[in-house]
Nucleic acid binder design. Structure first.
Lengths: 364, 364
DNA sequence: ACGTGATGTGAATCGTAAG
DNA sequence: GCTTACGATTCACATCACG
């Protein structure tokens, strides 16, 4: 294949398709490979509805060895077609990202950043057995240590209130109108990524006219954002249904650099939430400290987990405050005060203020 | 070594020291291994001051193979001494975390979460060539897939304003008076972790009295927090200077006399089981009483043996509740309500709570 | 039109003690 | 080691029905 087939979605095995492309011809590869989730049984929500899990055939591998072999194969094929100064992005979760990152380093890619996509609205952990899995990880790497790669530092900084763009990106998952639905109203693809994520990826690491290749194109989010941003794209997808959906999606995109898309990037600056437990973690309060009510009539003891305890009640600062006053609710932050020996009592809200002011330089 | 040397900082090679400890004897391992930073030359700030980089000998490895060999060695030694139901935490950056996570999976550890420590105050990227490296990654894994590991779900939720604790932790880096300084005013250790980070690690995954081992103890942050939280610790450190600094640090921490403050919110799962039949034995319910579903659509009759009966189903409160709703399962305690004549309906879970509170004076 | 409450859903390695 | 039965467990949004 002499001519690079840009702005197309090609159907077939991504490794075979990449092997047909000329070497050193692509500026950026964005890859969203199967995560190898290794799910065991069904999972039900507290209301007994069944979680619609990713149980597709394409995410099934016999073991780590099989997954590693697959990773090695597609990644070396991608490496061949990547320009010497090109970069690669790979997204994954803890199920697969350590296999991926390991192989990237083994193949000689030079890691530039790992970026965490912090989800504003992740699925909760229904059984209460782990931390809510609220993020995914992207790895950004250049082809070699010496690569003169593209990083649009100023554009990133400008889109982040003139603060350097950080390695933690807080973005919502793909829902609503953006989520492709079939005629049955069901989602077309189980793992469609939000355009805002790809927008930041492509805006940061490509120039207009660059060629972006996605070996696991799915419903074509990478292609769609590339088109909006005036980049050339090559989408490789094994499933004809996904490819058809993405072609239709691309057909509806006409404008380059739609201003509306830019607005997705603007981070909302709101006051950071500081849970009561943080005061203890930060050492502003200690387990065993005494909190007193405004009139000092009630005393509560602070426990290690951020709950407080009176002779009759145990729970959060809000719950206990409400219970004591026999009220439906209570703002524990303003109700409770720290009473240190020989000192004046201090509302715990002041301690929260202190943490917030320490957080102020935080870029986002 | 027969006796486990708890609440000590041992000086020496961590692999040799771990090999002397009895197998299956440690509840949690927290490891902060060298990051293998692979720095090339000095880095200067815009004002030309030199960045005090981590260039210590302990962070130098010839290549990935050497680092992998090192990782394999300390991790298998840690695995041996870890209890079957124990968990391991490892913290790292993109330089090493993919080697670490890969090896954890290879050794049969079962990944429970990856957690990102999002720094409120990271060092900026001075050259403007990458995203500000604003996070580090922790991996939390159990010894095997079948391990019955400790996760204090309720405590985490309580300390996060009654919302599930997520996998992204926003915490400041270690600065100020918490940062250990030598007589020269210089920081004692280049990568001292904040106590707030270890606080959350230990509170979430250990119980009071558990043994926590840190093979790369450094200035003893893990030990210090363990002591504060009433956990036993074993710190292993090769450098006598670091060990001495951590011993002095530990000396200044007094044991918390108030054990009650270390109690955390318990899961309902850990409360004593009360069979439904007990309500009848205790006379809180009587054979023939009527139970109603939440919307009062269904009525069931209580029988003497603790089963309930509707026109179509007979069995336990759970079985009948599930059958009626055509659900895979049902918590009969919260589903069924006692409907006494002319009175408001009462969830039978309230009757259970009455029995539980009569069983033992409230411990929390 | 606007507000309110009910319902649905998202890359998920999601239980455990008793017999 | 196995089976059986208990019974614990959700956050942020988007959509839609209803008033």
């Amino acid at each position: 294949m002499k001519q690079l087939p840009t702005n197309e979605i090609l159907v077939g095995d991504c490794i075979e398709l990449m092997n047909q492309l000329p070497e050193n011809s692509v500026d950026v590869v964005f890859a969203d490979p199967p995560y190898n989730l290794q799910l065991r049984g069904d999972l039900h929500r507290p209301n007994n509805s069944k979680v619609d899990a990713v149980d597709d055939a394409w995410d099934q591998f016999d073991d780590f060895a099989a997954y590693d072999q697959f990773t090695k194969a597609w990644m070396s094929a991608a490496r061949r077609i990547l320009k010497p100064n090109g970069t690669i992005w790979v997204i994954g979760s803890y199920h697969n990202i350590f296999r991926v990152g390991n192989e990237l380093q083994n193949q000689g890619f030079w890691l530039l950043n790992d970026v965490v996509w912090v989800k504003t609205n992740p699925m909760p952990n229904f059984k209460g057995k782990r931390f809510t899995n609220a993020h995914e990880t992207l790895i950004w790497a250049s082809k070699t240590e010496k690569s003169k790669y593209t990083f649009n530092y100023e554009a990133m900084k400008a889109s982040n209130d003139d603060l350097q763009m950080r390695s933690d990106w807080v973005l919502p998952i793909c829902t609503g109108h953006e989520r492709l639905k079939g005629e049955d109203g069901q989602k077309v693809h189980p793992t469609q990524k939000p355009e805002s994520l790809l927008f930041r990826v492509l805006l940061s690491s490509t120039n207009p006219g660059d060629v972006v290749l996605d070996p696991f194109s799915g419903t074509g989010t990478t292609a769609a954002v590339a088109k909006r941003l005036g980049r050339k794209f090559i989408g490789l997808e094994r499933d004809e249904t996904y490819a058809a959906a993405s072609r239709e999606r691309l057909r509806q995109i006409t404008d380059l650099a739609d201003k509306e898309a830019l607005q997705v990037m603007q981070s909302k600056r709101k006051e950071p939430r500081v849970p009561f437990g943080r005061l203890i973690e930060e050492g502003l309060l200690h387990p065993g400290d005494k909190l007193v009510s405004p009139c000092k009539k009630y005393v509560a003891k602070v426990r290690a987990d951020g709950t407080i305890m009176t002779p009759k009640h145990t729970g959060s600062i809000h719950q206990v405050g409400a219970a004591i006053q026999n009220a439906p609710s209570c703002n524990g932050w303003t109700y409770w005060n720290l009473q240190s020996d020989g000192k004046r009592k201090v509302p715990i809200d002041l301690l929260r203020q202190k943490i917030r002011s320490d957080m102020q330089p935080r870029m986002q």
